[in-house]
Nucleic acid binder design. Sequence first.
RNA 1: GUGCCCAUAGCUCAGUUGGAUAGAGCAACGGCCUUCUAAGCCGUGUGUCCGGGGUUCGAAUCCCUGUGGGCACGCCA
Length: 563
Amino acid sequence: MEEEVGMSIVTSMREKIRLRVIEALMRARDAKKISYRQLPEFVVEVPRDKTHGDFAANIAMLLAKEAKTSPRNIAQLIADNMQNEDGFLEKVEVAGAGFLNFFLNTSWIYEVLPKVIAEDQRYGTSAYGNGEKIQVEFVSANPTGLLHMGNARGAALGDALSSLLEAAGYDVTREFYINDAGNQIDNFGRSLEARYLQLHGQDALFPEDGYHGEDIVDTVKNIIEQVQDKYLNIDSELRREFLIQKALEEKLASIRYDLARFGVDYDVWFSEQSLHDSGIISQTLQELQEKDYIYEKEGALWFKSTIFGDEKDEVMVRSNGIPTYFAADIAYHRNKFERGFNQVINIWGADHHGHVARMKGAVTALGYNADNLQIMLMQLVRLYRDGDIVRMSKRSGQYITLSELIDEVGKDAARYFFVMRNPDSHLDFDLDLAKEESAENPVYYVQYAHARINSIIKAFTGEMPCGNEVDLSVLKEQAEVELIRKIADLPDEIIGAAISREPHRMTRYAHELASQFHSFYNSCRVLTDDQDLRNARLLLVDATRITLRNVLELLGISAPERM
RNA sequence: GUGCCCAUAGCUCAGUUGGAUAGAGCAACGGCCUUCUAAGCCGUGUGUCCGGGGUUCGAAUCCCUGUGGGCACGCCA
C-alpha cells in the first residue's frame, strides 16, 4: 500500500483519479458493457496543453485492442461511470484519439499554500527513498594538480544529484576518491624532485611526461620555504617520498578549499593508498582468482572482462608486481558494497566510458548486482574565451582552474551553467558570456524573482497573515492559479529528477517557477487596499519564496534577498 | 577499423521516459515604469526534430540503416 503521509498533493490527486478510473471500468464491466481480462499500465499525467484539463489519462487507447471496441467508446464509458458524488470533478471530457481529460474542482489547489508554509525548509522533500543508502562518488580528481572545468562540472552535477536524492528521502553519502597511489604519483614524485633540484640551481632533467604546470613549481617553492636545502644531499627515493607527502597534503588542502568555496561538502575522503596498505586489494584479487576470473599471461595477471562484454581483458597486476589502478578500483567498489550502500553512483568524464563494462563486470564477478552500480557519464567541457576554444591539458599545465572560474564567473552562475545542461551533451562554456552580469545569464532571472519577493515582504509593515485564517479562494486570476500549480509540482519534480538522475530538470523547473512569478508580479498587485486579497497574495508570495529558495538550495545556488 | 555519446528554430539548448497543435532563452521588431525592484512583463514568427526504412491507435522519443561530429580503444589513470 502507498503511504499516505508525505505524499504530495499533486500525487494524491493523480492517485484519486486513477482509482476512480479503475472503479468506473469495473462498474462498466459488471454491467456487461465492456469486457477485458487485465488492466493495462496507464498514466494519469498533467497535459502539456491547459485546454486538455488538469490531468489526462490514456487508458482507453491501451485497452481498445483487448476490449475490441474503439478508444473513444471506452473513454466515454469510463466518463459515464465515474463516481463524482463529492463534486471532486468539475467535468470529464473525451478528446482526441480517446484521451480522458479531467477538469478538477479548483478547491484542491488552495490546500497547497498552507502546506508549503508549514513545511518551510522541508517543502519539496518526501520519504520516497525510504532512507535507502546511496553513495555518490564524484570529482575524484588526481591530487597532483588543481581542479579544472571538467572537475567543476562533475562537482556541480554530483552535488546537485546528491541533494536531490536526499530531498527524495535517500540516505546519501558524498564521497571523493583520492588517487594518491600508482604511476601518476611516481611521475608526480619525479616532477617534484626535478623542480626541487632546479630551484637549488642544479641541472636536473625534467621528466618528459611530467607535470609541467606552474602550480607544481609553487608547491615546491612552499616546501623549500620550510625545509630549505635539507633534502638536497639525500637518497633520491627518500627525497621523493618526502616531497610527495608534503605536496599531496598541500594539493589536497587546496582541492578541499576550492570545492568548499564551490559549495560542495563531502562526507568521506577515501584514500586509494589505504587500499594498498590494508591488503584489501590483494584480498579482492584472491577472491577473483578463486572464482576463476583471473589468468596469467606474459607475467601479468589479467581480469577476464571480455566475458562481461568488454572489448578486451584488462591487466590487474603488472609484470613488475604492482597492481593497476583498475585493481584498486575494484577493491574500492567491493568496499562500497560492503559498507552497506544499496546503490552506488559514480560520475565520470565520458573519456572513461571504456571502463564502464569492465567495472560492472568486476562488480558482478564479486557477487554483487551490477545494476546497483550506476555510472553517470558526462561529456567534456569546452572552454571558450574571446571566441576561441581554450585547449586544456593537465600534463602541460594549460587549464583554467575551478578557483579561477569562481573568481571570474562566481559560484552561482557557474553551478547553474553546469547543471543546466544534459550531461550527455558537450558543454561549451563561454567565459565572457558567463561573466556578464546581464539578462543573458539565466541564474539572475531566477534569483531576481526571489529578491523581488523579499522586497514585497519588506515593504509590508503589518503582521504576516496566518495560513489557516485567510480565505485563499479569492486567488482566481489565471496568473495566481498557475503559480500555485507550479509550486505544487515541486515534490514530484524532485522525485522525478532524483530517480532519473537528471539534475538539469531542476534548473528548468526553477526557471519556469520564476517565470510564473514574474508574470504574476506584473499582472497582480500584492499590497492592495483590499485586505482579504492582500493577505491571500502575501501567502502566495511567501510560498513562492519558500519554493524558489528550496530549489536554489538544492542546486547550491544562493537565494539573495536583494539584487 | 571497433565500441560508446551526440545531431531539434539563425545561435545555445529543453522536450516529464511512446501521447494531442514540438517548446524556452538569446538575437530581431513593437508596446508596458508617478505603483511591491524594468536583471521584469505582454505581443509578433521561425522548424525536412540529420537522411532513409521499420514497430503501432500514436514516434523528436523505441528498433535497423546511412551521414556528420565528439570520445575511447596502453602492463596510463
